[in-house]
Amino acid sequence: MITVESVGITLGGRKILTNINATFHPGVPNLVIGASGSGKSVFLKCLVGLLTPQEGKILYDEQDFLSLEYDQKQELRKQIGMLFQNNALFDSLTVEENVEFPLKMFSDMSKEERKHRVNECLAKVNLVNSNHKFPSEISGGMKKRVGIARAIALPIKYLYCDEPNSGLDPLTSRVIDELILQITTDLNITTVINSHDMKTVNDIGENIIFIYQGQKWWEGNKSILSSAREENPELDNFFRASF
């Protein structure tokens, strides 16, 4: 479980996030939605410590993340898998080596075991026969899937996905949504997904946070969404604009 308490961050003299409160439970997908530039990526980066908020607290199962020493943070991060918005694949490594990389660094698996695990992860994201290609040689959607495969290669407790299906065709988008849902429930991990995909919200929106201009504007789930839209013009506009 992750608890976010009154987090605020200023970057380059501009307040990007203000007073964000949220609780993310394991086993259900948590969605962060909002327009482009609203601060979703910044929020995820705060959660993993790539950016340090000036205000507030972030608790990983009661552990105060922001007050940890660097080494302790690194220890915790070994349990985190993250899919970056622009994938951040290692461009000097092949698809296979990208997925194998965290295994090489942090597991005691033998070469065969690693290979097996890599193929298992790549099969999970429906990516076969591209093992030996480099990131520059595969499509945007394929890169996304490699990114997910790499994020789930090790046994993780927390999964962050920054727009996992932007740039994917609708069919693959659903596959990815399904996959993230399945990983989340099967492994009972805490998953936070940034998205502005309406379909994703309707499919897996069990816990939704809507960020508007750096603030938490609305919180709820897919079943109360339509009624909330009637009384929340910003939320309504956001969904209107996505179609």
Partner: peptide
């Protein structure tokens, strides 16, 4: 290209 960030997040 955020590969540095990717290393950090992996621990």
């Amino acid at each position: 290209s955020e590969q540095i960030d990717a290393y950090e997040v992996m621990g």
